[in-house]
Nucleic acid binder design. Structure first.
Lengths: 257, 257
DNA sequence: CTTGACCTTGCCGCAACGTCAGGGTTTCTA
DNA sequence: TAGAAACCCTGACGTTGCGGCAAGGTCAAG
């Protein structure tokens, strides 16, 4: 047989066969006078084994391992490992399919979330806010909320949004105060005032860490740095007010545990 | 934020963020005086959207498409395509898992098929052969059967093995005749004799095409070339005998349809 | 004799980053 | 205040399992 024949016989491409040669899986057969590879039945049997294994999902080096030990010792081992791997992959794909199906339903149901899909919790929160007067600070805040929504793991989300609920009721008071600080310096006297009002309507629990997608459980980045990052691109006086408010909340929390 | 911070916030690596910059998904933000990238909340929101989409399994260029059209037109389209893709992948993986589970059971049940797993059909056929006297031809034939077993699609396998059943009963006659030809020339008178005996115990249906893994339904390689390939590495007289036998079977078949 | 279907080697490309290498900056700590 | 740890930068190569192309050589048929 020439390479095209053996390849067709087993159901792979000639290119794949040459690839197996190159990676040492299939020994190079003898050559004809013209340089063509000449295959026999033994090669075809081996090639068929390789193909079956790769179709099961083994990588080429795993195939090499399995073929190498003539006894079936490593085979069971590799196969068990692979089985777990496949189970994990299947679960992963199912999960993605579910999330995708949710999104698809939502998208086909009419409203397409052009600025990114929002969680139901956040949607409810924003809906509860109702119509607000035009405000740059409100826009920024919605950006921040959207980011939080995307970044906070599902398990924490409802808790966090619940905390926001109380603050949302005072949005009409707070946004104008912060808007007024857009051009002010950090030592403006209105900073303290705004911080006081803001702190008054935030719940104690907001002073602590907020877990994010990146903080993988163990080495947690303190939530303070998250907040720092979120408010860093506000105007200096606004940033100062928010930071002050957060400190007030923390202090209040420490005094009344 | 610096790159490490935004990356941790959203749950990706800094390298991935730079990769998104390079492929134009995420615009390069402003730099600090020292050359560090400086990110804002808007970047984080965008990055979070990118991450959600990639986690759903979209490729980066698909993400680019989805992000590009502000209206959700292409989004539904891409998502539907992806959904089908995921369904296919899941089915594929489940199939592999099932086959793997079968193999694992078989392997753990005791006997490990060191020379490649054989189908139950072929195992039955070989078991029915019983103990044969030592014979090089028998060994070759087992190789060929193993290859056929691996190469013939499942649907055809039981039919093919059923055809072999009848021939297997005459193995004790045929193998010695062929073994005797191992050193002979192609024009040896015993060739015709062996071919006659062999043809007599082969069923008519063996003269036709045998579908293989490679023949993808439409452009079928004739089964003759498969047989040619399988018997090509026998001794010349043996090969001649087998070819003659096959021709006899074909002629017999045409005469008595 | 040409055409078309094979074969040969070799090298680039892909998808989504991981992982150095080689150098500069910032920040924490002793 | 110095040194080390922890960041940042760019650039370039590695990963997997081949697909595809280039630039030839070989072979059977019309």
């Amino acid at each position: 047989m020439r390479i095209g024949e053996i390849a067709a016989l087993v159901g792979v491409t000639p290119r794949a066969v040459r690839h197996y040669h190159q990676s040492g899986l299939l020994p190079e057969p003898a050559r004809r006078a013209n340089g063509y590879r000449e295959y026999g039945v033994r090669d075809a049997v081996l090639l068929a084994r390789i193909r079956r294994l790769t179709e099961l999902g083994l990588g080429l080096d795993e195939v090499r391992v399995v073929l190498a030990d003539d006894e079936g010792r490593g085979l069971v081992e590799v196969m068990e490992e692979l089985s777990q791997d496949l189970a994990r992959q299947e679960a992963e794909i199912r999960d993605r399919r579910e999330r995708l199906a949710t999104l698809l339903d939502e998208a086909r149901a009419g409203r397409l979330p052009a600025d990114g899909p929002l969680s139901p919790e956040l949607s409810a929160l924003l809906a509860g806010l109702g119509e607000l007067p035009e405000s740059p600070m409100a826009a920024k805040d919605r950006e921040i909320l959207a980011l939080l929504d995307a970044v906070v793991p599902e398990a924490e989300r409802s808790r966090l949004m619940g905390l926001m609920e109380g603050a949302a009721e005072h949005a009409r008071e707070v946004y104008p105060l912060l808007d007024a600080l857009s051009g002010a310096e950090a030592d403006d006297p209105r900073v303290a005032e705004a911080a006081g009002v803001l702190a008054a309507c935030l719940p104690d629990e907001l002073g602590v860490e907020i877990p994010t997608a990146g903080s993988g459980g163990a080495a947690g980045v303190p939530g303070a740095s998250l907040a720092d990052a979120l408010f860093a691109d506000l105007a200096p006086a606004q940033s100062a007010a928010v930071h002050l408010a957060m400190r007030l909340v923390r202090e209040r929390r420490e005094q009344r545990p």
